[in-house]
Design a protein around this nucleic acid. Structure first.
Lengths: 107, 107
DNA sequence: GTCGTAGTTCGACAGTCACCGTACTACGTC
DNA sequence: GACGTAGTACGGTGACTGTCGAACTACGAC
């Protein structure tokens, strides 16, 4: 099983479960915004340890959990590493322009 | 006597003082989101009393203050009435697409 | 097995925030 | 003047949230 169907131990909301308010709440924090920016900048997956944030590991876990529950990021487990990615397609489909507007902000 | 003859001392941030984080924080509340939606729907100014929100007057004042400080809405005083409007031009210029994305959200 | 690494879970704590009621100011009308 | 209306300011309270350290699980390498 080299595909995706075997290991979804991480709960993600489906596209229609994503709410604008949840997304806005998730983005309305400097640490989480930094995470989203890094994910958007690379356009690739980033492991937790590869994210540059000024908080401890446990706090980072907390923030990633919020982002995941809001439907902003997706997590993929591989060994002990968790790869995080931006759910750009879903977000763009639900709220076209939102992500672009946020990322267009002058830092 | 020397009364306040110039009456628009309502503090609004200039365009370059508006931050994406402040805007997101302001929008990340159901009451404030409802206010923004109503302002966007009519495209016109709405007095405080003309807004439909499930909170008391004092709480509404609080929310409008946050929206104003974040640069999301502008307030214009006329007699005892305060007219609120969406700063759509500024927001679109700073964060193109953001407002559209938020308003595109289902409900 | 033992160790190190990646990340989560679990309290706990401090700061923020939404909410309210009351009191207050400012304006218009009688 | 007195009165009603539009909205703000103040003080308080309960709930939420971001933060941390320490303990924990899971995997890989030795």
């Amino acid at each position: 099983m080299a595909k995706t169907d075997t290991l979804p131990p991480i709960a993600h909301p489906t596209r229609d479960e994503i709410t604008i308010e949840g997304v806005l709440r998730a983005l309305a924090d400097p640490v989480r915004l930094a995470i989203v920016r890094q994910l958007a900048a690379t356009g690739q997956e980033i492991a937790c340890g590869g994210l540059t944030v000024p908080v401890t590991k446990s706090t980072l876990t907390h923030h990633l959990s919020i982002l995941r529950h809001a439907g902003v990021v997706a997590g993929r487990q591989e060994g002990t590493t968790r790869f995080n990615s931006l759910r750009r397609k879903d977000l763009d489909a639900l709220f076209p322009g939102l992500l672009a507007g946020v990322l267009a902000a002058p830092r």
